[in-house]
Amino acid sequence: MEIMNIVGFALVVTVFAVLLREGRPEMALLLALGFGILVFILVLGKMGTIINLFRDLTRSARVDELYLTTLLKILGIAYIAEFGAQICRDAGEGTIASKVEMAGKVLILLLALPIFAAVLEVVVRLLP
């Protein structure tokens, strides 16, 4: 099972990070960043199958493809923004982390606008 070797590997990397932290703090940060990216790539690889299932469901339910693609984009932006913000906060840079999160929120809001418009349009059509 992947979770076994992920956790084992995480412990090893943590030991290395602690070892490096007092001598070379920036190396420890880069090490943590490298490990985070590796796990992220592994997990995202598996995310593809979930997304394909959602696509088949939406196609069979004849729901408009726009909603799913927007949802996926928002999910992607959220993942990346959270990943970056966490790395920055780990390094002690709280301000940079909050700026990254704010940018993520604005971009997600931007993506959600067409869906707001669609919902409003449906509501208006329902009103007598």
Binding site: M47, G48, T69, L72, L75, G76, Y79
Partner: peptide, 8 residues
């Protein structure tokens, strides 16, 4: 990977 998975 993210671009391919999420079609960003």
């Amino acid at each position: 990977v993210v671009r391919s998975v999420f079609h960003l």
